[in-house]
Amino acid sequence: MIEINRISKSFAGKHAVKDLDLSVPDGKIFGFLGPNGAGKSTTIKMMTGILPIDEGSIIMNGIDVAKEPMKAKHQFGYVPDRSDIFLRLKGIEYLNFIADVFEVPKDIRKEKIEYLTKSFGIYEALNDHIQTYSHGMRQKIVVSGVLLHDPDVWILDEPLTGLDPKSSYTLKEMMRDHARRGKIVFFSTHVLEVVEQLCDEVAIINNGHVQFKGNMAEMRQQFKDDDNLEQLFLELTQNE
């Protein structure tokens, strides 16, 4: 369970996120939908402790993210939107580093690294520097790192962008599987279609405000009824 209580964040006096209120139940895939610049990444960065929260609070599985950051950070795994990870490390060195951070025992990490990277098709690239990876491969190594320590909560910022169809399918299956086990998957996207395929619950964010929250059926109804949302709907469906 993640509770986001009226959080705000501004950069140089301009609000990127304003009074955002959300609650994400267990066992659900939660889609965080919005056009570019809506405030998705900013919200996620506050959830993960990358940005300080200006106002409000975030409680993750009963732990206040701002008050007990170390404890909270053990709860989730995060896939950032940019693949600016440590590029000069080899893939395997990165994974081993993550495993050290989360104190994954040696035989488990060995088995998992092999299983995960093989299913993403990057096993044979593990000995190369991450710098030589394509965007999709970088995405995959980060996702492998997250799955390696098996956190309760997955937080993924535009995880499907740049993945090939096969890996995209694999990741979606893994997300469904995780939710089925009663855990949380929270991910952001700017593509409506992805939400429709994947999500149980959705929140639509625009200009730092939540415009809608509810399940899929409610969302479709709302798009028809609400003139404001219709414009947004167009933005989210064009291209891609």
């Binding site: 995060y78 950032p80 600016d84 590029l87 951070v101």
Partner: peptide, 10 residues
């Protein structure tokens, strides 16, 4: 730009 990685890891 990879500095932020230190922030979300425990």
């Amino acid at each position: 730009k990879s500095w932020f990685n230190h922030l979300y890891l425990p």
